[in-house]
């Protein structure tokens, strides 16, 4: 436990004197820290055992050829080289990028818009908020089955299109329509969740700021631009980071609704990993793709943290 030790140089002079006189754990501050680490320890242990060790294990597997049936065989970086040349992997990366950005950009704006609406004085606001939030709490399997029915050639979506005079769309068999369909379904499910986060951010902005802005002659769009957006910045960062991480891990609904088809048009990276590992039993290749997904998500997150970092010069 590296963090437990505080070097004498870090301590104020008085504390240093006390430190000399008494063993380290006798100081109140040190005892306080020790308790803190003690309470953190179980969670830290869980993280190590169930997150970091499996991640290290996945990295090791990514350097092997392993089919579950025979012992792993070390192959160096060959799995990574195979992935780089694999058109299916390229297709999966493309599908994932399309899905993540298509869904996230829509979610950022739609959920912010809904939060602004629900933050304004509305009749029966709480009831409406609750109704709007329901898709976010529906179990993912139920959500997938609901959309399986909606996407049916004679399902509600096509009935609605027909009612407004538009031609029916083959949501599940047309390779051009299937991903926009998934983006639509993800928007239905996730926009309410992010709306709540935005709503919390909006409600934490003190009303005095708006009053001061109003005195200065800023109202409506100007107040939104000059007061709401800057103060909502940490919330926006949270929404952007969490939404990208969530969407890049999409799996269950794709598996249930299309299984990655038609013609691989919905085979997102997590499904590619699942199929490679658990259908074809190529654990090494699947692990390499997992490591790629991990680093891809981490890179985006760090990039966003940097982009949204508060400018120290104000």
């Amino acid at each position: 436990m590296v963090g437990l030790r505080t070097t004498p140089a870090d301590m104020p002079a008085k504390a240093r004197d006390v430190g000399r006189a008494r063993p380290w754990l006798r100081s109140a501050e040190a005892r306080h820290q020790a308790w803190g680490y003690l309470f953190l320890a179980p969670m830290f242990l869980l993280l190590v055992v169930f997150k970091f060790v499996p991640m290290l294990q996945a990295f090791y597997l990514s350097l092997t050829s392993y089919d579950l049936l025979s012992p792993p065989r070390f192959v160096g970086l060959r799995n990574y080289a195979t992935l780089l040349q694999d058109p299916l992997f390229h297709q999966s990366v493309g599908v994932t990028a399309y899905y993540v950005f298509g869904t996230c950009v829509l979610i950022w704006f739609v959920s912010l818009g809904m939060a602004l609406i629900f933050n304004a004085p509305l009749p029966a606001k709480n009831v409406l908020r609750t109704i709007y939030f329901i898709p976010a709490i529906v179990p993912v399997v139920v959500y997938a089955i609901i959309w399986l029915f909606l996407f049916h050639p004679y399902g509600l979506l096509n009935v609605a299109l027909h009612a407004i005079g538009l031609p029916a769309v083959q949501w599940l068999s047309d390779t051009r329509a299937v991903l926009p369909g998934f983006i639509l379904s993800s928007l239905w499910r996730f926009a309410p969740y992010f709306m709540i986060i935005y709503l919390a951010g909006l409600q934490s902005i003190p009303l005095e700021y708006y009053e001061a802005a109003a005195i200065d002659g800023a109202a409506g769009a100007q107040a939104f631009r000059c007061v709401t957006l800057p103060l909502l910045r940490p919330t926006i960062l949270l929404v952007v980071v969490v939404s990208i991480i969530l969407m890049s891990k999409v799996f269950t609904n794709v598996l249930i609704i299309t299984g990655g088809g038609p013609a691989g048009a919905t085979r997102v990276l997590s499904l590619f990993i699942y199929q490679t590992g658990f259908q074809y039993f190529k654990m090494g290749l699947a692990s390499a793709a997992s490591i790629f997904l991990l680093f891809g998500t981490m890179t985006f997150t760090l990039l966003q943290l940097r982009l949204f970092r508060d400018d120290p010069r104000g």
Partner: peptide, 13 residues
């Protein structure tokens, strides 16, 4: 799965 993808490409695309 390779056969299924091939059929998908021919039949659907």
């Amino acid at each position: 799965t390779i056969i299924a993808r091939m059929v998908d490409r021919v039949v659907l695309k």
